[in-house]
Amino acid sequence: MYLINLVDYTIDFPESDCSFNKLNFTLSRGDAFAIIGDSPDQAHMFLKALAMLVKPVSGDFYFKDKKVDFSDYRNLLPCKKKIGYIASDSAMISNITVRENLLYTRYYFENLLSLPLDETAKKLCENFGIYDKLDICPGRLSSVDLRIAIAIRELVKSPDLLLLERPEDFIGHTNFDLFTEVLRDMVLTKLPIVFISYAKDFIEEFSNKKIFLKNGTLSIN
């Protein structure tokens, strides 16, 4: 079973002069793709497309062998919930605290507002040094802490797929080793990942396949 299967997938981004023409791409459990390409914009857009944040012009997107219907954004929500997206345009909701951000999905789906953080989230917050900053709004965090909080939120949502954009910059060099440790454990459970990175060691360690993007076409090695 493919987790993601793109068939003749065409996307156009008029605002960034990026486009993908009739992409075919499959991703299964255990796959770890590193995206290699000339244009960082194009790589970022590919991640966005995998996160279903862009509506295709044509083609089919299959998630767990089920065709995704892009005609209504509500059809995408159950799939998006299973995708961890750690990228430059990931954000936190600014008018609630970091703790509430980490618990937001659980607040909604468990229909309770008095939930404690689970042990994994608590441990990650402690390890990354943001535990004492959980009760402030994201706007008051330093940019490094904010990005760490976003990463923790995405890691603890038990994703079926993790998308990462330059984790070495996103997490910051001080915490990068800690992050790779966490990621290593997750990858060992055969969690598929797709990432863009300029850190050679990271690419060597975490990728078992490479995606080459050039002029809107994709090839896999």
Binding site: L77, K80, K82, A91, I93, S94, T105, Y108, F109
Partner: peptide
């Protein structure tokens, strides 16, 4: 202003990525 801000700074996307409408 709040909704525009949420839209521009991808907070609406963040809500969607949490599986919430």
């Amino acid at each position: 202003i709040e909704i525009s801000y949420m839209n521009i700074f991808h907070e609406i996307d963040a809500i969607e990525m949490a599986g919430i409408d």
